[in-house]
Nucleic acid binder design. Structure first.
Lengths: 190, 190
DNA sequence: CGCGCGATTGAGTAATTTCAAATCTAGTGG
DNA sequence: CCACTAGATTTGAAATTACTCAATCGCGCG
């Protein structure tokens, strides 16, 4: 099971068996089922999650009880409430699986320890965050530049797997439109 | 002049004089005037920029010749086309100052070298990117969750300095609305 | 078979955009 | 000191787009 984690690290850094052994001892495997929350609004967040199987979502619920999806996390992705985690303030997000899922859990404390002890690991996480940063910039550009249909089409192209596992209303929320609007957009002739 | 850079690093890591000396030798100071581009669409990007004075903007121009502001960079911020830089693909952005400005320039190559040579520096940049990542997540949430007026009010609150130096039409673009809409929003009684 | 959830459709309403014109403001030169 | 210009901002009115709310449809599962 931890091979996935190793393969994930080794896309960016090389690890000896003992190095990986050491690293992986800081991760705990966890199965989660639908409606089981890894993060809940108001809680202090201590952990970060690496998705092995399934799909997680992070979202906030506004004062009208509407859900706004910030992120989907497919296998090989990381997810948590980073804002709450880094500042140690109560979370404003919920994180739970779309259906059942499996993750590896690492505490912020252990991650920081590993980064301090092993320059390689710090390098790995810097590179990872850089990629995440770029991805978010692209998403922001999409949100201010293109209409919902283009965003929808781009999302399909980039993550076709999402459409097997995620209800369209969650995708609508991720794209920043209502489910009705999304439904009309991809019906219309163009 | 380089004191700003040092202070910037030392918010996160401690440096000896000789360490900072070594780091700072990889930066070049540069003054830029209005309409002088640090990055242009179609170019390969080699450098990253640390703003010392003034305000830079990064933006793309769409097929209708409309400008979409991705980022403002005030003093103490970093800016470049990260997507183009990390993948070494032609930029899709323009970066230039709102008015004249001053920056420190470092090449990607030198930055990577410094990160490799000095664990501390890699730590610094990981922390920096983490903060940037969190900021972008907040912005995405704002874009999908709140209307333009709320986004406007939050921006004023967070970066009052922007409103002294940046024309409102650029701010409208950053917020993802037209200048007319922005103008009406902050006129209206609420 | 019927329940429940997600997806779709329709009609009316609200928000935003577009385009054009008017207004304002700072800087320049006479 | 004033007139002039360029750029930025504001305003108006019509058109477009997205939203809300309610009703209906479709499908898998007990």
């Amino acid at each position: 099971m931890k091979e996935l984690l190793r393969a994930h690290f080794e896309k960016i850094i090389d690890l000896t068996d003992s190095e990986f052994e050491y690293i992986s001892n800081h991760f705990k495997h966890k199965k989660i089922i639908k409606h089981q929350f890894l993060v809940q609004e108001g809680e202090i967040v201590k952990n970060e999650f690496f998705v092995v199987k399934g799909c997680l979502k992070s979202y906030m619920v506004d004062s009208d009880n509407k859900m706004h999806v910030l992120q989907f996390a497919l296998p090989d992705w990381w997810i948590t409430d980073y804002h709450a985690l880094y500042r140690q303030i109560p979370s404003s997000l919920y994180i739970d699986p779309v259906e059942s899922a499996e993750v590896f859990v690492i505490s912020l404390q252990d991650k920081e320890k590993l980064c301090e002890e092993m320059h390689k690991v710090e390098h790995f996480f810097r590179k990872k965050t850089n990629l995440g940063y770029v991805g978010l910039q692209q998403r922001v550009l999409g949100l201010i530049k293109t209409d919902a249909r283009d965003r929808y089409e781009q999302l399909i192209k980039q993550y076709p797997a999402l459409f097997q596992m995620v209800p369209k209303q969650l995708i609508a929320s991720y794209l920043g439109v209502t489910r009705e609007t999304l439904s009309r957009l991809y019906k219309a002739p163009k």
